[in-house]
Structures are given as C-alpha cells and as structure tokens.
Write a protein that binds this DNA or RNA. Sequence first.
DNA 1: GCGAAAATGGACCCGCAAGTCCAAAGTCCG
DNA 2: CGGACTTTGGACTTGCGGGTCCATTTTCGC
Lengths: 210, 210
Amino acid sequence: MTRAFTRKGEATRSRIVTGAADEIRERGVDEVRLEDVLARTRTSKGQLFHYFPDGKDELLLAVAQHEADQVLIDQEPMLSNLTSWPAWLAWRDRLIERYLAQGVKCPLNGLLGQTGRRAPGAQAIVTGLMWRWQKAITEGIRHMQSTGDIAADVDADRAAAALLAGIQGGVLLLLSTGKIDHLQAVLDLTIDSLRSGARVTGAQEGNGNG
Amino acid sequence: MTRAFTRKGEATRSRIVTGAADEIRERGVDEVRLEDVLARTRTSKGQLFHYFPDGKDELLLAVAQHEADQVLIDQEPMLSNLTSWPAWLAWRDRLIERYLAQGVKCPLNGLLGQTGRRAPGAQAIVTGLMWRWQKAITEGIRHMQSTGDIAADVDADRAAAALLAGIQGGVLLLLSTGKIDHLQAVLDLTIDSLRSGARVTGAQEGNGNG
DNA sequence: GCGAAAATGGACCCGCAAGTCCAAAGTCCG
DNA sequence: CGGACTTTGGACTTGCGGGTCCATTTTCGC
C-alpha cells in the first residue's frame, strides 16, 4: 500500500511539508489555511490532495512528525553525548541558543494538549518525542553516574523526568512571556543540583510525601 | 462605559462564561462552536452577543480570565502559606490532586503559545497568571530562608522560576502523556533540593556556564 | 400598572476555507 | 512513438459557523 511517487512527486511532497511547517511556525497551527501553504510552495489544491488524500489532517500529521524529529536533531550531537560536565553545559548552551533563536514560534505547541485531538496521531508523535528525549537525558545521567560524576543514589529516571518537564515548562514560558529566564534557570539549577549531589550524596531517598 | 446589567443579566453572563469554560475543557478551544455553548447554557445567539458584543474573542477572553483566576484559587490556602516543610508538602499534594483530577482537560492550554494570537489579551492574562504564581512561590522560598529552612544563598527568584517552569512542564506532559509522573518528579526533587540545600549550603553560586 | 430599558429567541446572511473533480500537461518505459 | 500513469492547475461545490437583526417578552423603578 506504499504509494509510488516519482522522484519529482517526492520532491513536491516534501516541499509541501516544509512549507507548511514554516507557515505554521510563523502564524500558528490554527491560523494556517491550505491556500497559504499552496501559495508559499507554489503548488495547487490538486497536488496537495494528491499527496495527502486525507487533506489537512494528514498534512498536519506529517508536519508534526517532521518537526518532532527536528527538535532532537537540533540538539545533536550534544544530547547523545552527555558524558562530562562540559558536555552538559554545551548541551545547555545549545538549547538556550536554539530556543532563543526560535523565539515565540513553536510548531509543536498546538499539538501538545487538546488541539492534538485534531489528529489523534499527533498525540502519539509528541509522546514519542518526549519519550526519546527523556531517554537520552536518562542515559546521560547514567553515564555520569558510571564515572562517579553524579551520585549513584540519584534516581536517573526521575531526575530525567524532572529535567525534561523543566525544559518543557521553560519553553512554554518562553512562548508566553518571551523571556528565556525560566529555561535558563531550570537548566542551570538542575545541572548544578546533579553536580553538587555527587558530593553531598544521600541527601534524598524515598521522600516523605503524603 | 461600564455596561449596566441587571441581576438576571449578570447571572446569564456568568452562566455563559462558566458554560463556555466547561465546553472548552471537554473539547478544546478550537473545537468549541458558539452553538455548543448556547446549547449547553440554554441561551441564544442574541444573548451571547448581547453580553459579549465582540463575539467569540471577547467570550474567550472572559473565559481565560476566569480560568486563570481559578488556577490560583485552587491552590489556596496552601500557596500563600509556604511557611514550613509540611506546608510545602501540602501544597505539593494539592497540586498533584488537582491536576490528577483535571486530567487531560486544560482550559488554558490553547492560550499559551501561538493560539494566543486570537485574542492579544489572552497572552497578557497568561503572563499575569504566571507572574502571580511565581511571586507566591518566591515569597514562600524567602520565608523559608528567613527561618533558616532554606539556605540563604539560594536565589529565590531563580529557584521559583525553575520550579514554576517545572510545574508547567509537568502539567504539559500530563496533558500529552496522561501520566502525572513528571509533575510529581519535579515537585519532589525540587523541594528535596531546596530542603537539602539548607544543610549543604554554598554548593552553588554563579555557575560556570559557557 | 406603565413605560423605558434590558433580556431573549431565533431566523437569516455571508464569507471563508476544506474538499471534489476533471481536463490538460508532463513523465517514463518499451 | 505511443500509451499508461503520474503530476499539475484551478474552477466549483459545500457546509459550517460567526455575526447581524429585529420582533417579542421580561424586568424594574416609580
């Protein structure tokens, strides 16, 4: 059932995806009209529905996948090499830099919560992204534990979960306030915390919550 | 220019607002049609435009304000009394409980990023909410510092910023994954970190980032 | 009770944007 | 070259949903 597109067709298809992605970045998911995409990519309705038979939903899904992949790619090679403190800081810098540049334009923003219902698959894409992202962070922490740079009693999964959440929230706040401060605070404080925990050791454990 | 509504009118207006809020929670901002709200609140087009002359935008704005206020109200009285570790944990529990109950339904979600463009004022409402929220957390930290429960060298503003971001991200991840784990991890680890920092002291300072 | 003003109901208008359809042009392979 | 299939253009249909309008009813102060 894999549709057979010619070389040219494939090119057109991907031109539409990236064009739509750009459009979404600039004006937001729900402000984008199919016609805008057509104009920007110099394509026609016929083409769009030729490559995306299910119309807008299918296109949006393709864009989402495209952008989700991009998020992680943009963090490489740092994200996959969190093997020393300088490496962590380099990653931190990359994140700040990337989101600072991106500013208020977040292509995935609309897909996160409710809006994701448009295309049920969008939720899955975001979840998958988060999952991969967190996994990379967890591995970084584990590696640092193996070298003794992070205390062995730190729960790598939980720490990674918290850091990921912090990053997401930092980006969210960047989107709504326009300031990078929150993202920066999260990254710096969390990394410092992991760092100092190496010496402090044993500070946490099953914490006594209600 | 304050429009004069009668008692009854006021009631109808607020019925519309809360009804719209419910509708949005259930189906997401961009899935909500005016007619849905009318049906749910047993009102008519005439009424809606009578109370919200600027139509949907104005209604959405009113809903946003309503929900934003609610977010903080739901955290009281804990949020304003972060004066002891048990109090902090009580607040933590309240947050978990609240968001667990709320689940995937976040009325403000759509207003955060791009979607906020619909109503320029929505951005302001969210920013205002975040600002108030962070202020409360900062005050909590400061108070704990005044009693020596948190190290004096902790930058209360930055710590609060990081915690707020973590919470936002935790909620965001709850929305997309359906799991509360991230929010929980953020709260537990951050509080633990603030807590243990009291004894460890001096671990951070201007951190040596790039 | 009476008149002014507010509240209500709902039919109607209207534009927009998604999606359909088909004919024309291009491509590819023997 | 010829025929099958893909690609392309764009006119047209369609439904949805926001917003308008006005006639009717209710409320409220006096």
